[in-house]
């Protein structure tokens, strides 16, 4: 399993792997917002948490279709299905690799981008916490969409339509956590909800994704 993780990370970093694509996309979204809504600091500060979360979510979505499609095309997925590791483990490892190459850079870079949006100072810590807790759920939920669309040509758009509604709870509680943190309100409830959603997602979704892949391989 460590071999699968290191292979996926290596593939992502090498030429054509798409590493950093999500990060660049995130940066562009965040820089475009002031052009759209105007440069007034108070307006930006109010919408910053939502924009940052939305940007992170879209950046994550961008690379989802690569999770299984490339392995399906070159036959690796067939061979992994006949390998001694269970498909659920393959899905979990691939979600982890996706998070390390997409989610983690977003978490690390978010404070930098938050400056562009005048995010209030007390919110920085909560932004980090919310992204760190929430982005793993985005990757794991993404594997489900990717598994459903794995055999389809040009399945990317369908994948977005399938996955985006599943991201709603994470987006609501993630953005809410940052907003409450910025205004100095109590943060326990959104924090607990966000953590709970991620825990449940990581525990349950790999089984659904593995089942979807098995059906698609037939």
């Amino acid at each position: 399993m460590r071999a699968l993780l290191s292979r996926d990370l290596r593939l992502a970093i090498r030429a054509g792997g798409g590493f950093g694509l999500g990060l660049a996309f995130f940066l562009i979204v965040v820089t475009l917002v002031p052009f759209g809504v105007g440069p007034q600091g108070e307006v930006l500060a109010r919408i910053a948490s939502g924009i940052l979360w939305l940007g992170a979510l879209l950046a994550c979505l961008l690379s989802l279709d690569r999770i299984f499609a490339l392995d399906f095309e070159d036959g690796s997925l067939d061979l992994l299905a006949t390998a001694p590791i269970p498909m659920e483990a393959v899905v979990t490892i691939k979600a982890l690799a996706h998070w390390i190459t997409t989610g983690l850079p977003l978490v690390l870079a978010a404070p930098l981008f938050a400056v562009l949006l005048h995010l209030p100072a007390p919110a920085y810590l909560w932004l980090e916490i919310s992204l760190l807790l929430g982005t793993p759920a985005l990757s794991v939920l993404g594997t489900f969409g990717a598994a459903l669309t794995v055999g389809l040509k040009r399945g990317g758009l369908l994948l977005s339509l399938l996955v985006l509604p599943l991201y709603v709870p994470t987006l609501i509680f993630g953005a809410e956590l940052v907003r409450r943190g910025a205004e100095g309100l109590a943060t326990q409830v959104p924090l607990a909800m966000l953590a709970g959603i991620t825990a449940a997602t990581v525990a349950l979704v790999p089984f659904a994704s593995a089942a979807a892949i098995r059906v698609n391989l037939r």
């Binding site: 292979r7 030429a15 067939d78």
Partner: peptide
């Protein structure tokens, strides 16, 4: 399909 990764 041989299941090979082109960049490895």
């Amino acid at each position: 399909a041989d299941g090979l990764k082109a960049t490895l």
